[in-house]
């Protein structure tokens, strides 16, 4: 069992009366590639901002590398790299100057080779002024500044926004490589396919709360099933006489056909259906999109 790099316990944040996050708890193990997924406004960035001590929690606590995020913030930040979702850079600097400036905080004055290497991979011109860069190129600068000091933990908040598919793929390659080297990755996104492609474990955030946290494979294979039943006549499939624990998202496709998500005991389902006249029955693993939509709704 790997030790935890991030430990969040009952973390809540309110902005006045409005909700930021509520009672968020999760752990991220060493070397994990962890997905943090939820729609916009769900509380992903709020959680990350607390981890970086940009904002203060209303209650609860969080630790990174076993250190308290409030008390030992500077020490923690010395060992992590962060790609913000929507942050500006010092516009008047040239890219190379900016990246060297950032690296100097980590005591890495000789980071030139690494900057050059990362700029080569992401196809970024180091001699341009930041103010002249497109949104996508600014994102590349943000990614490089997070990687240049070879951090033990990478926190990425919507890192692909503004990047074209080719660069996205190069970024995924870079992140996978860093992860193989031992870097723990905390990947926040609202784009399911990204999380699906990269992460082994995921937490789903909805309206400030974590509604599910598990391995992607487990979410997909073991828990939720999509059940479609086609009855031979219209009288037997109505919802009011067809209730089993674990049945959710019930939908009547036609007078004879129903569809629902099922997370209960499969034997109970079979037992319940056995007394009815059925023309067709399918029980399948739903696509990941449907699993997430199920939790979002």
């Amino acid at each position: 069992m790997s030790s935890n790099i991030i430990e969040i316990s009952n973390l809540s944040k309110y902005y006045g009366r409005s909700r930021g996050i509520e009672d968020v708890s999760l752990n991220v193990g060493q070397g994990e590639f962890f997905g943090f997924i939820g729609p916009n406004g769900a509380g992903k960035s709020t959680t990350i901002r607390i981890l970086l001590n940009l904002i203060f929690p209303s209650s609860g606590s969080a630790r990174i590398f076993g250190l308290d995020v409030l008390r030992d913030s500077k020490k923690i930040r010395g060992r992590l790299g962060y790609v913000p979702s929507d942050a500006n850079l010092y516009d008047k600097m040239k890219v190379r100057e900016f990246l060297s400036f950032g690296a100097a905080f980590y005591g890495r004055n000789k980071s030139e080779d690494r900057i050059q290497e990362l700029a080569g991979i992401l196809d970024l011109n180091l001699e341009r002024r930041i103010t002249d860069l497109s949104t996508g190129n600014k994102k590349k600068v943000n990614i490089i500044q997070a990687l240049v000091h070879r951090p033990e933990l990478l926190i990425l908040d919507e890192p692909t926004s503004g990047l074209d598919p080719l660069i996205q793929s190069k970024l995924f390659g870079l992140l996978t490589e860093e992860n193989k080297r031992g870097t723990t990755v905390f990947f926040s996104s609202h784009i399911l396919s990204e999380v699906q492609a990269l992460c082994r474990r995921v937490a789903i955030v909805k309206e400030g709360r974590i509604v599910k946290s598990d391995e992607i494979a487990v979410l997909r294979e073991k828990q939720l099933k999509k059940v479609r039943v086609l009855f031979t006549d219209t009288g037997t499939g109505l919802q009011h006489d067809f209730k089993i624990p674990g049945m959710e998202s019930f939908h009547r496709e036609s007078q004879r056909s129903i569809v629902f998500m099922f997370s209960g005991d499969i034997n109970e389902l079979v037992h319940c259906l056995s007394g009815r006249s059925i023309e067709n029955l399918s029980i399948e693993e739903p696509p990941l999109e449907e699993i997430f939509l199920h939790y979002y709704q």
Partner: peptide
Amino acid sequence: YLKTAEYLMSRPIS
């Protein structure tokens, strides 16, 4: 207000 705080404050500086 220029949104550079997030960058600066993610450096190891108190």
